[in-house]
Structure formats: structure tokens, C-alpha cells
């Protein structure tokens, strides 16, 4: 049985959100706390996918991870195979399109943490990594969670860049939003209808869960 487009959307969005956390959280913290050289340039680069048309984003990604692109060629040389038109490409598209939302929200969360808390923790003998996990992250929690919600919502709805780099292979890269487009194109309106409703419910349900969790930790 092939993977349902909605299940695929969910999986892709989940992995893309996890990747965004791993990459975006440290970046957001650096932007909030450290005097980074070229900080404005980094900010522009990180936020650019928010304002670019998704097809333009997809086009650039295609140049990068396509069979002729530097990343695409490197992957094939390393024996990892082709990236375009695979679920990996869908994840990459969703990640690039959604990571700016995490960075922005988490950065403002970090900026609201009074540095005196981290300094107090330093004078109490803790190392930086331990302070990050016990003080900085919990105090920036609301911002981070808002970022996760937005990132997931953006990732699960990704369409333009996904179509460009991952296409619409049933069971492999045809995500919910792509499947809706295909169904409408083919005149299968009841299928499009059902998918649209289900996608809406999934997104709304996830957001609801995240806001519920948001009230809990430590506060």
C-alpha cells in the first residue's frame, strides 16, 4: 500500500521541523546573543525564503541539489544516489521554506531572556551547554514553541518548492498540498475536498496541541 499523501505531508513536515530546530535554534541564539561578524547579511539570508516566491526558492534548490548541481553531484559521488524527486528533496524544500519562521520566533524568545540569569548560572559553576539547556531554552520556551508551530504549519503546507524539486510521485513525493493540486487539475473535486478538509484539521490539531504544551513546562 502506498503512503497516503497526508501521512507523507505529516512525516515530511515533522522531519523538516526537527531539522529546523537542530539548525535554527543555535543560529537564533547566536543572532540574539553574540556579536557575529556579518550578522545583518546572515539575517537577510536566513529570512529570504520567507519573502521569495516558493517557485523561485524551488528553482534555486534545483540548481543546488539537481543532478548537475554541486550538492546533487556530491551526493551521487558519495553513493547516496539522486536527491531530486525523492522524499529527501521534499524534506529539503519544506525545511528551507520553513526554517526562517523558527529562527525569527526563537531569536525574539532568546532576546527576551535577561542575561543576568545566565550570568548567575555561570557564577554557580555551570558550563555553557548545561546553562543553555537548563536556563536559556526554558526561559525562551514560548518563543521557541511559537516558532515550532509556525515552522510546522509552513512545512506541512509547502507546495511551490516541493513541486519543483520533488515532483508528484504517488506514495513517494506526492504530499497533501501537491495531491490537492493534482486532484483539482484532473477534475477530481471530491478527492480535493476531502484532502483539503483533512489537511486543515491536521494543521489545526497540531497547532492546538502545541499551544496546550506551551503552557506547561516549568511555568
Amino acid at each position: 500500500m502506498e503512503v497516503h499523501p497526508l501521512a507523507l505531508s505529516f512525516q515530511v513536515a515533522l522531519v523538516a521541523t526537527a531539522l529546523s530546530l537542530v539548525v535554527g535554534l543555535p543560529l537564533a541564539w547566536l543572532l540574539a546573543r553574540r556579536a557575529l561578524p556579518g550578522r545583518d547579511l546572515i539575517t537577510v539570508l536566513v529570512l529570504l525564503p520567507m519573502v521569495l516566491p516558493p517557485t523561485v526558492l524551488g528553482y534555486y534548490l534545483l540548481l543546488l541539489i539537481g543532478r548537475g548541481g554541486p550538492v546533487g553531484q556530491a551526493a551521487e559521488t558519495l553513493g547516496l544516489g539522486r536527491i531530486v524527486f525523492t522524499p529527501t528533496a521534499a524534506v529539503i524544500a519544506a525545511f528551507v521554506a520553513s526554517v526562517p519562521f523558527l529562527v525569527r520566533a526563537a531569536q525574539s524568545g532568546f532576546e527576551r531572556v535577561d542575561p543576568a540569569f545566565e550570568e548567575a548560572a555561570r557564577t554557580l559553576g555551570r558550563g555553557e551547554l548545561s546553562i543553555w539547556f537548563t536556563i536559556t531554552i526554558p526561559l525562551a520556551w514560548r518563543g521557541i514553541l511559537a516558532g515550532v508551530a509556525l515552522t510546522f504549519a509552513r512545512a506541512i503546507g509547502e507546495f511551490g518548492a516541493t513541486v519543483m524539486v520533488a515532483g508528484s510521485i504517488p506514495g513517494r513525493t506526492r504530499t497533501g498540498s501537491v495531491a490537492i493540486y493534482d486532484a483539482v487539475q484532473a477534475g477530481r473535486m471530491s478527492e480535493a475536498n476531502l484532502l483539503a478538509v483533512l489537511l486543515t484539521l491536521t494543521a489545526a490539531g497540531t497547532l492546538y496541541l502545541l499551544t496546550r504544551v506551551g503552557r506547561a513546562p516549568g511555568w
Binding site: 540569569f117 555561570r122 559553576g125
Partner: peptide, 15 residues
Amino acid sequence: PPRERGVGMVFQEYA
């Protein structure tokens, strides 16, 4: 670094 100094501190607003 602060963690190796063995110096405690009470901050102005206590932190």
C-alpha cells in the same frame, strides 16, 4: 571562567 573561580554572587535584582 566564572565556574572555576569559586566566587559566588548575589545580583542586584537577585536573578
